[in-house]
């Protein structure tokens, strides 16, 4: 990995978008404002040869509220053989940010998943429906305040008790 080249790019982008830069274990990430993300990804694609959007996901820092969500992006450049990351910080109260589907088409699936799992709304997304859960599902499962949904396990000592209330299917 050409680290110097990556650092130059990151420094340039930091300057341009007034972003924060941080590095952990050789991975460079920028912290961006939500309204910059489209221009940022367009610059990455057209000026710095980052051809692939590798992933787009989110982390929920509940119970913190401002910011509650970090939307994590990662782009890969085949030409430069490197990866650059970015984070966008969102508030907990009806989080919403611009979509980058028009720049990287595969953001479509990622953003639908983020809507489904975290309830983060992407403006101007062409098809923001639930992707994993059924359409009538309530809640956003990957949020930290959403319970895991643990069901009590049947062991020998509580077998009969659970067996009685287990909803067995009929013919």
């Amino acid at each position: 990995m050409m680290n110097e080249e990556l650092h130059t790019i990151a420094a340039e982008l930091k300057e341009r978008f007034a972003a924060d830069l941080y590095e952990f274990r050789g991975e460079v990430s920028l912290i961006l404002k939500p309204e910059d993300i489209v221009a940022f990804s367009r610059a990455l694609r057209d000026e710095y040869d980052f051809e692939l959007l590798t992933e787009e996901t989110a982390v929920d820092y509940w119970p913190e509220q401002t910011p509650r969500f970090h939307v994590v992006y990662r782009w890969r450049s085949l030409k430069r053989n490197t990866i650059i990351g970015a984070r966008v910080l969102l508030d907990g109260n009806s989080p919403s940010m611009p979509s980058i589907v028009k720049v990287y088409l595969n953001a479509n699936g990622f953003e639908r998943e983020l809507w489904d799992m975290f309830g983060i709304c992407f403006e101007e997304h062409p098809d923001l429906r639930r992707i994993m859960m059924p359409a009538d599902w309530v809640g956003h499962p990957l949020r930290k305040d959403y319970p895991l949904g643990y069901e009590e396990v049947q062991f020998t000592f509580n077998f009969d008790e659970i067996d009685q209330r287990k909803p067995y299917a009929k013919e």
Binding site: E151, Y168, A169
Partner: peptide, 19 residues
């Protein structure tokens, strides 16, 4: 019985759906 996936997404045993 749901196996290792004791969570929100998986039916805990298909006997809840079909005999």
């Amino acid at each position: 019985c749901g196996g290792v996936f004791n969570n929100y997404a998986i039916v805990q045993g298909v006997d809840e759906v079909v005999p």
